[in-house]
Design a protein around this nucleic acid. Structure first.
Lengths: 344, 344
DNA sequence: AGAAGTTACGAAACCGTTTTCGTGTTGATA
DNA sequence: TATCAACACGAAAACGGTTTCGTAACTTCT
């Protein structure tokens, strides 16, 4: 096992100083031709690579970005992550992922771990319990320390920072309008607890559409499910009890489950009931019938978030100091992917 | 924006030396009661947290582990990652993820980036093109440098290191045997190019089962699909052409696609044809009928990999030096989750 | 030949810690 | 009272780089 070679080793071996070696390797013109060549050849021969940690310490820059997400086993977050990783990797940044598991405490711990020099900035989607208890001091502290944050999807008004979201409300409106245009009148909403900003937005869009089309809002047509565990009986009852000819579901899994249960009850999809979900994942593509769904363009979202973060990070380095902070919120335009759960 | 506070700041403020501050904070008994309390109080007040980078440099230990996987938008890898992250996080390690995108070049670049001090060890699944071209020098170099690697799932005999795999061959054998026991005789295998060690193993298990049950191997019953793009026509032809009453598919997506196409052709599942897939993801759970599949227990695999890596990393620190390297291969027992694609 | 400017390199500081070692002060002991 | 621990702290080195500054040796100019 040959240990990593350092500048000091090279310097000793070649009987020059460490500074000379450093400069020679960076092709400084302070160093003579011969010495440069000698050093570079030696370095190449022994496959010298500078130690990232030492450079980080010196430059006060890690070239790492921290990503904190509630759950990695989730198609949407995964695609966002891919976008982040792709962009970051391109720009020479590494990505450290922490999973908050929808837990406020873990989110706080993870942030604290990474905030002590491990990363140059954060990209995150808030955990469910953080949104529920509305406590964002951990974010504030990090920002206070001069570490930039980009929030995506699960965001909050209470923190002033860059954000990337989709036009949830608008696209939900559009999806419902489309079903109404098909002549459907009894439109259900299948959602989860409203402390999630996105669910709330989607519900708003749903209501907007009803109002815009002159339909009445019937609270009985709104089914609220738990976030992490689907109670099939609840769904069964719902579709038995109410007269429904269309349903907007706030995610892919809800949609597929509801669709399956409705089919079991003998309803034909899309003839009797149409379904629209959110998240264009494998489930939507491979369900039967295939699911019409809102594509959130997670990868694009991730790239955008990474771009915003890295720009902020690199701006801070050449801080002219007097430029005041300015934060933006980018909206990624969601699109509706029409499949067979709404039209044949 | 208050900048991070350092030992030096505290020292200056309290008019003691940096070493005193450091020791006081670590509760060294070299330091007097009063001084300790003074320092600790001050540190608490200003929320002092030591700089991880500096500690890493000093300790030659980053407390980071590098994970390199071919694809993050993939249920199996995602669950393995969750296991890794969970275990690592518990032990105070961070996880840096790089996606090789099934590309040899990216795999090499990512490893090189991380090997220069950014991580204490690697956990990885080989990219498709790495397996295809059989070039593992990047792994050898890293191991040479004393950085441990744990390979999982996509492994190779050509590298001597810790590995975590599942009993692919055995479980495939078992799955096929089960279908044969149901009286099925025309068993298809839907697989992909055989440079993936896992596909190869599963194919072997398939063949083993046929032999064990005295059935003949019919090459026509083996359908080979591309890794990343499913050609539906190919599948359609296959099920039209061959007389098939059961199919073992090397992944979830293949299984669901095939099942859908077979159903379109008028076959009843499981009456006419039974299907078994690999990977117990959402697709398997929510397909219609629900899919019998091989659960790979990715999370457990990830935990095991992380455990092995961290143990090796921490052993190296107190290297008695004379203990010879020993590598193990852990086999996670896969299980068959029976659902409605094989029995009603 | 002396002044001035180049060239090519080394010493040392610095990033933020930890840790070893040295030392001045105290109190106890012989 | 001289000796010796024990105590409490500071100086300095180390981790592996980068960068500023100083300077010896050599050129060039007048």
């Amino acid at each position: 096992m040959k240990k990593k070679i350092t500048l000091k080793h090279i310097a000793r071996e070649l009987e020059v100083s460490v500074s000379t070696v450093s400069k020679a390797l960076r092709n400084s013109d302070e160093i003579g031709r011969d010495t440069k060549e000698k050093v570079q050849a030696f370095a190449r021969l022994y496959n010298y690579k500078p130690n990232n940690i030492a450079i980080s310490l010196k430059n006060k820059q890690t070239k790492n970005i921290g990503v904190i997400i509630p759950n990695i086993v989730h198609h949407f977050f995964t695609t966002v992550f891919r976008g982040i990783e792709k962009y970051a990797s391109d720009k020479g940044y590494n990505v450290i992922v922490c999973v908050s598991d929808e837990s406020f405490d873990k989110e706080v711990i993870n942030m604290e771990m990474l905030a002590n020099g491990s990363v140059d900035g954060f990209i995150m989607a808030l955990s469910g319990s953080t949104q529920r208890q509305n406590d964002f001091n951990h974010l504030r502290e990090v920002i206070e320390q001069g570490i930039p944050i980009v929030l995506f999807d699960r965001v909050t008004d209470q923190i002033n920072c860059d954000k990337v979201i989709i036009n949830d409300r608008e696209i939900a409106h559009k999806a419902v309008s489309k079903m109404i245009a098909q002549g459907r009148r009894h439109i259900a909403l299948v959602t989860n607890e409203n402390y999630f900003n996105v669910s709330e937005e989607r519900a708003q869009g749903y209501k907007d559409a009803l109002v815009a089309e002159g339909l009445e809002l019937d609270e009985n047509l709104i089914l609220t499910l738990a976030y992490d565990e689907i109670d099939e009986d609840l769904i069964l009852d719902f579709f038995k009890r109410e007269q429904i000819d269309a349903a907007l579901c706030v995610n892919e899994i809800f949609a597929v489950c509801c669709m399956g249960i409705a089919q079991k009850l003998g309803f034909k999809v899309p003839e009797d009931i149409a379904f629209v979900g959110f998240t264009d994942g494998i489930l939507s593509r491979h369900s039967r019938p295939s699911l019409t769904t809102v594509a959130q363009h997670g990868e694009q979202m991730g790239e955008m978030a990474a771009k915003m973060l890295i720009e902020k990070v690199e701006r801070e380095i050449n801080e002219d100091d007097d430029e005041q902070e300015s934060y933006q919120t980018k909206v990624i335009e969601a699109t509706i992917v029409e499949r067979n759960s709404t039209v044949n």
